[in-house]
Design a protein around this nucleic acid. Sequence first.
DNA 1: TAGATTGTTAATCGATTAACAATC
DNA 2: TAGATTGTTAATCGATTAACAATC
Lengths: 205, 205
Amino acid sequence: MEGKLPEKTVERLSEYRRSLLNCLLEGKTYIFSHELARLHNITAVQVRRDIMFIGYSNAQRKGYEIKEMINVIGKVLDSNDGINVAIVGIGNLGRAITSYFSGKRSKLNIVAAFDNDPDKIDTIIAGVPCFHISQLGQIVKEKNISIGIITVPSDYAVDTAKSLISVGIKGILNFTSVPLNVPESVYLENSDMITLLEKVAYFVK
Amino acid sequence: MEGKLPEKTVERLSEYRRSLLNCLLEGKTYIFSHELARLHNITAVQVRRDIMFIGYSNAQRKGYEIKEMINVIGKVLDSNDGINVAIVGIGNLGRAITSYFSGKRSKLNIVAAFDNDPDKIDTIIAGVPCFHISQLGQIVKEKNISIGIITVPSDYAVDTAKSLISVGIKGILNFTSVPLNVPESVYLENSDMITLLEKVAYFVK
DNA sequence: TAGATTGTTAATCGATTAACAATC
DNA sequence: TAGATTGTTAATCGATTAACAATC
């Protein structure tokens, strides 16, 4: 809806939602901005500002209605009809991510896995069928997949990205340490554990 | 050395270093700021500004000497005597990360793994010995470990963080989706794949 | 030299925080 | 009401980009 939210706000909304779902499970129905802030180790102002962005308002000063807020976050973050995701590379990391998502988020579904190892083709990994990478185009079309997760070894990263782009993928989540080049129209998010660990090491000094 | 660099600069320096190592392998000896920028899909100004921060200067306008630059980045990012790292939680993700780092960075070494599954205790995972979580304090002291990676299931995340902090860990890399509370003196870095994927999904819309 | 490249200051952009009026 | 909480504007902080003089 309307313009795009700031990146950081989007990240936090995703995090808030999970905390709120937990609160619901614990039987809570209302939550103050400072409570939510405390759960995430940030300030109450920041929480309120994020909430401002999504246009949810709370007339009575009795805290936010948790269920309602989850709905509103869903309206902002989620796509109406669900998004199908493919994962390329079924090593340990690919497997970890696939099982992690397996049946969790209702709107984001990993519906296909790809690899080039014959032993993995035609098996089911955490409920997700594994195909040979050569079938990428066909399956992406058949299953209406719009996001690709890259968990291949470094040497295959660039080619994998190219393939994903050429078959019309709109967003890529890259878990390799290889910088990727994508056209304007494709959204790219990188997560590189070497960099993360080196960063921790630097700031620990 | 001296004051701390900006977070983003630290991240990019880690990334530059890997590209530079690749360039060395390809037989390159000098690299222009715009070449390095191109490899990372950023601007040449940004590269030069980052290099400015680490105080490396290149008098002749013939590009940066790659070997020298790798050294300088190492002086800034790396600790003199190497840093020992522990990983807690040897599921698929823990295994993926452990094998990934296995023998890669010389200054950052995963020297111990921890789990609570009796089948895993006393085995070797990608060259790293696995201990029972109850031995955490002892091993951290023995092996002089200062960073902990958390890859346990969500339900154990908070307790794992507490244990790591109580045994004197200085930095935590948290791969669970659970927000953690750490004292000032501990550096915390989070990497949450649910948030990352939801972010891609949002910006793809 | 002229063109390409660099280092650095100033300007801009984006994200966080402070301040505060409004409301229950 | 008085105290707690909220929504929002203005100020600050941090990171990126534009501009440009200096140099090979």
